[in-house]
Simulated assay, not measured.
Amino acid sequence: MKIAVPMYVREKDKAVLEAAAPGAEFVYGKDAAALQGAEVIIGNVSPKKLAGLTSLKWLQLNSAGADAYCRPGILAPQVQLTNSTGAYGQALSEHMLALLLSLQKKLYLYHQNQLQHQWKDEGEVTSLEGATVVIVGFGDIGRAFGRLCRLLGAHVIGIRRHRGAVPPDADEMGTLEDLPRFLARADVVASVLPGTPETTHLYDGKLFQAMKPGAFFLNCGRGNAVVQEDLARALTEGHLGGAALDVTDPEPLPADSPLWDVPNLLMTPHISGEHHLAQTWDKVAAIAARNLKHYLAGEPLENVVDRETGYKKSI
C-alpha cells in the first residue's frame, strides 16, 4: 500500500506514522509523482492535484477546515475524507487571546508609539473580567477559547449549529439564528467558523451595527465570513473598539487593500494554526496515526467530514 504524505513532517512525525502502518510504502512530498498511485494521502494538497488519482481511497487532512475538498467534483464519492479536528484548540485559542488582550490593553498603540519614540499615555483600557464574550463556532477551537476567557472572568456565550446542553466551557449557548440578539450584549465577538455557504459574508454592516458600541471583533475562522468593507467602516466610524484578523479574503491580502490602513485593526497572516506550535503538529500526527490503524483494521475512521456541511460528522 502506498501512502503519500504531502504535509510538513518532522523526523518524529515520520516515525509515528510509519509505526502505525508497518510494511507500507511511505512517500513524502507534494509533487505529482509522490501522489500518483497512492491509496492514502495524509496532508493537504491543492484540490486540483487530486484529479486523476484513481487509486485514492482515503484523504486525511492536516487541517480542521475541509471546505475546499467538499466541493462537487474534487473527490470521488467513494473516497473517505477526514480532518484534524482536535489538534488546533490550544494554538488558535492562545493566539486569539493574545490578539484580544493586545486590543483591550492597547498594546498595539504602545508598540506604534515605541517605533516613533513617543512616551504617550493612551488612556483607559478594558478587561475580560465581567465581559461578555460571544464565540461563534463552538467546536474544539471555540471551546478552548471559551475556557481561557472564563478563567479570566468572562461570561461566555457559545454559538453552534444545533441546540443542546450547555457545555462546561460556556455559560449560555445558542445557534446562528440567536446571534443578532446576543450581539447587543457582547463586549467581544470571536468567530472560528469554517467556510460554508451559510457562513459566507455572515458578518456584514447590519451585524456590526448590532454589536455593542466599543466591542471587539476577532476572526480566526475563514476570511470570506466577513464583508471586509463593512468591517473597515465600522472601525473607521468608531462603532467598534477594535478588531483582529488572522484570515482575510483573499489571501495573501493585496498590498493595496484598504484594510492595511484601518485604525484599531490587527492582522496576522493566517499563522495561528499549521505547525507554528509544536504541540499542534504532535496532535496532527497522532490523529493521522490512529486513523491509519483504524483504516488498516477496517474500522471506522475518526473525524470523518460531512461533505454536505463541511463539518466533522457527529457520532
Rank of each mutant, 00 (worst) to 15 (best):
A285Y: 00
P47E: 05
L301D: 00
K212C: 04
E198K: 08
G273L: 04
N291V: 13
V247D: 09
Y69E: 03
L259K: 02
A51W: 15
N291Q: 03
L265I: 10
V79K: 02
L59C: 01
W58F: 05
Q279E: 15
S127A: 13
A190Q: 08
C149W: 04
P168S: 03
T132D: 06
F208M: 04
G130D: 06
T200A: 15
V227F: 10
G223D: 09
G137Y: 00
V262R: 07
A243D: 10
E251W: 00
A232Y: 05
K313Q: 11
D121R: 12
G65K: 03
K206M: 15
G89Y: 03
P194V: 00
T268W: 04
N291Y: 08
G205Y: 04
T199L: 09
R181L: 07
E299Q: 14
N303P: 10
I315V: 15
I74P: 12
V133H: 04
Q80Y: 15
A24C: 00
Q116L: 15
L240E: 03
Y88I: 03
P258Q: 03
G37V: 03
M267A: 12
V192D: 04
G73Q: 00
A232T: 01
M211R: 01
V284M: 05
K57R: 10
L176P: 02
P254V: 05
E299G: 14
T54Q: 10
F145G: 03
I42K: 09
A255M: 12
A288I: 05
K313H: 07
L152Q: 06
P269C: 08
F216L: 13
A297Q: 13
G153C: 05
W58P: 02
V189C: 08
A154S: 06
A20W: 08
V156I: 03
E237S: 12
A190M: 01
G43M: 02
L301C: 01
H117R: 15
I157M: 00
